[in-house]
Design a protein around this nucleic acid. Structure first.
Lengths: 169, 169
DNA sequence: TTCTGATTTTGATAAATGTCAAAAGAAATC
DNA sequence: GATTTCTTTTGACATTTATCAAAATCAGAA
């Protein structure tokens, strides 16, 4: 079983829902080109959890690890190209070549570290600081994501983010 | 190299600082008996990031994964017994028996999932809801951790948590 | 270009929470 | 048991941010 033969390449239009909250995620997708976000919907409130750029992975690690329905949805925000394979294929691979668990471990560690940073920033930084940090790290986000999406990612209302922007300059 | 011979058992008194912010963490510790917390200190504000019970692991996954100084400290909150081994020993083991990466992967996934849940609860739940969820999951925490520690874990001031408690019953 | 719908900004007000200060209570030490 | 120290509660007030509503701006379709 060759790795290459497992991979399916797909073109996805803007607005496409790659994964819907409540469904069990079955795939890893590598975002070759485009832009996407993960979000969580709770009582009508739609909150962005992450943004994914070229080279990032689109999946629900939760679903993969637990086999349970994902509580995040994945939305394609710009026409994109992804390369995907199923969890089943990956598990076969891991079974056959246990060394690959090293990659899995490093990946999960990486995920954890990024999330830890995000969590800390919620507890220690103001929305304003989080905003400027975000656009410093990912300036492109300003052009690619809407104010509403960014606001919910930062944990503030749109109006508040708009006022944060207004204060500067 | 036997796993058992690597492990060192230690008794640690209440108040002991197992890991200090700014130092590179070198060990995994399994908490056999006792109670501990991880916390982060920022400009004098001391914020609890997690509590560890019997059976939990005490370490800085961040330090382990990156080799950089930990930004969390680990404090023993009750006289405890831990079983520890160094990252170096663990890495030797992983190199010799790559299958162990599976354990590492699952562990990192587990860490990630728990943190994800915590992060979501910050964005979607009120401090009151987070409080009652915490004591539902870990009732013992009420007896073992101080109000101040719990308040910072929940992301509110002590006074606010005190008022949350007063409202009920 | 013009229209239409979505996004962003602005204003007024209400609600939640933090901060400071002090009192009350509990625990530890002598 | 009395004293000291730490923890928790309570009160008053200030600050931050959300919410609701409306206006302004922008973007895509006709």
């Amino acid at each position: 079983m060759a790795l290459a033969s497992m991979i399916t390449r797909k073109e996805l239009p803007k607005g496409y829902l790659l994964l819907e909250q409540g469904n069990v995620c079955q795939h890893f997708y590598l975002l070759e080109k485009g832009f996407a976000r993960g979000y969580y919907n709770h009582e009508g409130k739609d909150v962005s959890l992450w943004f994914a750029f070229e080279g990032d992975i689109l999946t629900s690690l939760y679903s993969y690890a637990t086999g349970k329905p994902s509580y995040t949805s994945i939305e394609i925000l710009e026409d994109s190209v992804v390369n995907g394979f199923t969890f089943g294929q990956l598990n076969d691979l891991l079974e056959k070549y246990p060394e690959f668990n090293l990659v899995g471990r490093l990946l999960a560690e990486q995920y954890f570290i990024e999330l830890e940073e995000r969590t800390l920033s919620f507890q220690f930084k103001t929305a304003t600081e989080r905003y400027y940090e975000l656009i410093r790290k990912h300036p492109q986000i300003l052009r690619r994501a809407s104010l509403g999406h960014i606001a919910s990612f930062l944990g503030v209302s749109q109006e508040t983010l708009s006022r944060i922007r207004a204060k500067r300059e």
